[in-house]
Design a protein around this nucleic acid. Structure first.
Lengths: 330, 330
DNA sequence: CTGAAAGCGCTTACAG
DNA sequence: CTGAAAGCGCTTACAG
């Protein structure tokens, strides 16, 4: 239609024969307009191809409909589904997602500056943490913040994760019931709460039953799991079971063991964590601990929506129970 | 610092003893200010925690620093890396990414409305297409648009993809040189240009050499590749080679064949497309065609940046050559 | 219910 | 180089 000039509420008002305020009221949720005015405005708007300017809107309301989603581990197949589910849920709620990628386990001021500049309505940090003074910036600006799949040491924020401690314990008990007599734990990055808590629950049970175990530190990647498994059996001794802190490492572990001719589950057992799609592939059929992703997402979004509606800044640690998924590696 | 009132340029100006215009000039790239003023402003800004409001900025400049990134197939491991690389590149250029997920191969008006509302600086559509009247909306608003890894029938837009036709031909020639005598092609979704062109190049060569082949239609998923491979060998006849339109399906194909006891590469060969990370995993060691992702991203970004700097609306079809990666399935 | 007007926080001619 | 002022496109008291 028009070539250069962007269509504004004023243009629509003129064509519809009403005031600019009335046009605004038609598009602003909650405002009151007569049906007659509404129809006139919508007709004119359609004819001109009008579209309310989000920037003008945000400038005056001091609110946005943007959620900042910060992700670290998009390489881990656990996260793409998290991303798409969040995006779909927010779209249904009328929010858009500003995607921020970071390589840092602890977010830097620079990583999240953009979120403050855009005055986002809320923020989700997945698979990463943040120094307190950075996190406090969000507090000062009354921007609600959720740590997803991470727990902060600090009690001042809100986090949603799987109950990793419980999971670690249950995995240990499950393996013990299978008659396993010694175990290896392959950890993820040790600065993550997920790896530490899974480990803590696991070791706690083993120690109470006086079962010998060895820990190998790795890094939540396939290659890490592969190399660490090789290292673990280099001495010639193959432990009765491997608990691997996430699935993608567990797949690496399985491949390394297969490559060394170790029979699974006869000679050793492997159990992962997450229940990514690949765990169910015929080549792997990996026993694992399923993260309750749907529920975790639900709690995250409902906290954010509440806080966006009426900011309280309340903190909390939500831990959702997962479940063991038994397949063919145990 | 301050509790409720957001800090504006006016506040900074007051504290620094300069005009609001001067504060603005310090933060607006290209504007001129004396070093003395700059230092006074920066000191005051730091003290108050000032941060320019992006919305006010965009409102007046009628430009944003947001790129809309629309993705369909985030389940396909090819795409997460695409997402993170785009995000990292845009961050370095001072742009943010508004992430839009869709399930539709052809985008609906609703899918991209948000991008128009936010008046994004540019748009990338990956793994999907768009009806012409929707695409034209971007044109009318002078928003540059790139189709990534898709080609439109229409010549009015800009697309960047792998040279799929050439790849299909080279794959056929490679397999023929291996002495293969009959082949199966497992296609991706047939409404995608990628699948159609890979197929076209492949069949073209086979037909010119009078090599028999069968085509099975599938859907670019692991499960699709798995089931289709089973179907293909149900008759009892195992073809000498499978060309599978993407890697994730090829992995499904490999697993199905293994499960049926078919030896790879002795009894049949499998070649995929993309070169996702998993293709290199020891369990698979999949021969595949590597997509030149870095280059494809480079062309996409450089087109967008040029068009953002000075809009021309020029169209084009960039096709970058990939390369065969030989592993153990052929 | 509706309109005229103020104002959100910036950028940008314009004058000095 | 700097400041006063207009204006980007909206929302929202306020009055009628």
């Amino acid at each position: 239609m028009d070539m250069n000039h962007t269509v504004t509420a004023k243009d629509v008002a003129k064509l519809a024969g009403v005031s600019q305020s009335s046009v605004s009221r038609v598009y602003f949720e909650g405002a009151k307009v007569s049906e007659k005015t509404r129809l006139k405005v919508l007709a004119a708007a359609k004819q001109l191809g009008y579209r309310p300017n989000e920037f003008a809107r945000s400038l005056i309301t001091n609110r946005t409909r943007i959620i900042g989603l910060v992700m670290k581990g998009v390489d881990n197949p656990f996260y793409p589904q998290v991303l798409t589910r969040f995006t779909a849920a927010f779209k249904a709620l009328g929010f858009s997602v500003l995607f921020v990628h970071t390589n840092n386990e602890e977010l830097e001021a620079e990583d999240i500056e953009i979120l403050l500049n855009y005055n986002v309505a809320g923020v989700i940090i997945t698979d990463a943490t943040m120094s307190l003074n950075v996190a406090n910036e969000f507090k000062e600006n009354k921007i609600p913040l959720v740590f997803f799949n991470r727990k902060l040491q600090n009690d001042d924020f809100y986090s949603v994760s799987c109950n990793n401690l419980d999971a670690g314990r249950k995995v240990a008990i499950y393996l013990l019931e299978k008659g396993v007599t010694d175990m290896v734990y392959i950890s993820g990055n040790e600065d993550t709460s997920t790896s530490r808590e899974r480990q803590r629950g696991f070791f706690e049970v083993l120690e109470s039953r006086q079962i010998p175990y060895t820990k190998y530190a790795s890094n939540y990647t396939y290659e890490g799991g592969y190399q660490t498994a090789l290292k673990a059996i280099r001495s010639g001794h193959v432990p009765a079971a491997f608990f691997v802190a996430n699935d993608i490492m567990a797949l690496g572990t399985v491949d390394a063991l297969k490559q060394q001719g170790v029979k699974i589950p006869e000679e050793t057992k492997v159990i992962g964590f997450d229940d990514i799609e690949m765990a169910d592939w015929p080549s792997y059929q990996l026993t694992t601990w399923r993260q309750p992703v749907e529920k975790m997402i639900h709690f995250t979004i409902s906290y954010l929506m509440d806080e966006i509606a009426a900011y309280t800044g309340k903190s909390g640690k939500v831990e959702v129970n997962g479940a063991l998924i038994e397949r063919l590696t145990t």
